[in-house]
Simulated scan of single mutants.
Amino acid sequence: MASVYRWTFALLLSCMAGSALAAGNPLSVHVLNLQDGLPSPDVRVTLEQLKGDGWHALNESVTNEQGRITALFPPGRALESGTYKVTFKTGDWFATHKTQTFFPEVPVIFNVDGGVEHYHIPLLLSPYGYSTYRGN
């Protein structure tokens, strides 16, 4: 029983540390696998910004053990109002786990209006469906 409490406490501290890191970066993501209810580590995620002539790459990262990227926006740059796209490379992740999927990637296009300091995009994932929303 004590190990359950230690694990729960460690998870709580990890989440708090992730939140503290995210506070300094305007964009974070989180991937949870709905099939088993666990975080999805090692999902490659790209970030692009829509400019006049198309999408321009800004950054790329991989989710940590908690399925999070706490700082996806490039350091040293200001988050401008506009349209952005976060793409979760889900096909690669499912292939690594020897699971077929209908969605090789999940693009999430969203608008930044400057109304908040931090944008969080969670992805709830299964092999044949997904859901996302504006988190905080």
Rank of each mutant, 00 (worst) to 15 (best):
residue 69 I to D: 05
residue 70 T to F: 02
residue 71 A to E: 09
residue 71 A to C: 06
residue 71 A to I: 01
residue 72 L to F: 02
residue 73 F to Y: 14
residue 73 F to H: 07
residue 73 F to A: 06
residue 74 P to C: 07
residue 74 P to F: 07
residue 74 P to D: 06
residue 74 P to G: 10
residue 74 P to L: 11
residue 75 P to M: 07
residue 75 P to Y: 08
residue 75 P to H: 12
residue 75 P to Q: 15
residue 76 G to I: 00
residue 76 G to R: 02
residue 76 G to V: 00
residue 76 G to S: 04
residue 77 R to C: 05
residue 77 R to Y: 04
residue 78 A to V: 08
residue 78 A to M: 09
residue 78 A to T: 04
residue 79 L to M: 15
residue 80 E to Q: 14
residue 81 S to F: 00
residue 81 S to G: 14
residue 81 S to I: 00
residue 82 G to I: 01
residue 82 G to T: 00
residue 84 Y to Q: 00
residue 85 K to D: 01
residue 88 F to Q: 05
residue 88 F to L: 06
residue 89 K to G: 06
residue 90 T to A: 02
residue 91 G to D: 05
residue 91 G to R: 03
residue 92 D to V: 10
residue 92 D to Y: 03
residue 93 W to R: 11
residue 94 F to E: 05
residue 94 F to Y: 15
residue 95 A to I: 03
residue 96 T to I: 06
residue 96 T to D: 14
residue 96 T to K: 12
residue 96 T to M: 10
residue 97 H to E: 05
residue 97 H to A: 08
residue 98 K to R: 14
residue 98 K to E: 11
residue 98 K to S: 14
residue 99 T to K: 09
residue 100 Q to A: 15
residue 101 T to F: 06
residue 102 F to P: 01
residue 102 F to R: 14
residue 102 F to N: 10
residue 103 F to I: 02
residue 103 F to E: 08
residue 104 P to E: 09
residue 106 V to S: 08
residue 106 V to K: 07
residue 106 V to N: 11
residue 106 V to W: 03
residue 107 P to C: 09
residue 107 P to W: 01
residue 107 P to F: 00
residue 108 V to K: 11
residue 108 V to R: 12
residue 108 V to Q: 13
residue 108 V to P: 05
residue 109 I to W: 07
residue 109 I to T: 15
residue 109 I to Y: 09
residue 110 F to H: 12
residue 110 F to K: 10
residue 111 N to H: 13
residue 111 N to A: 13
residue 112 V to H: 06
residue 112 V to I: 10
residue 112 V to D: 09
residue 113 D to K: 10
residue 114 G to H: 08
residue 114 G to R: 11
residue 115 G to F: 02
residue 115 G to K: 13
residue 116 V to Q: 15
residue 117 E to H: 10
residue 119 Y to P: 05
residue 120 H to M: 11
residue 121 I to Y: 01
residue 122 P to H: 09
residue 123 L to W: 10
residue 123 L to K: 08
residue 123 L to C: 12
residue 124 L to D: 12
residue 124 L to S: 14
residue 124 L to G: 13
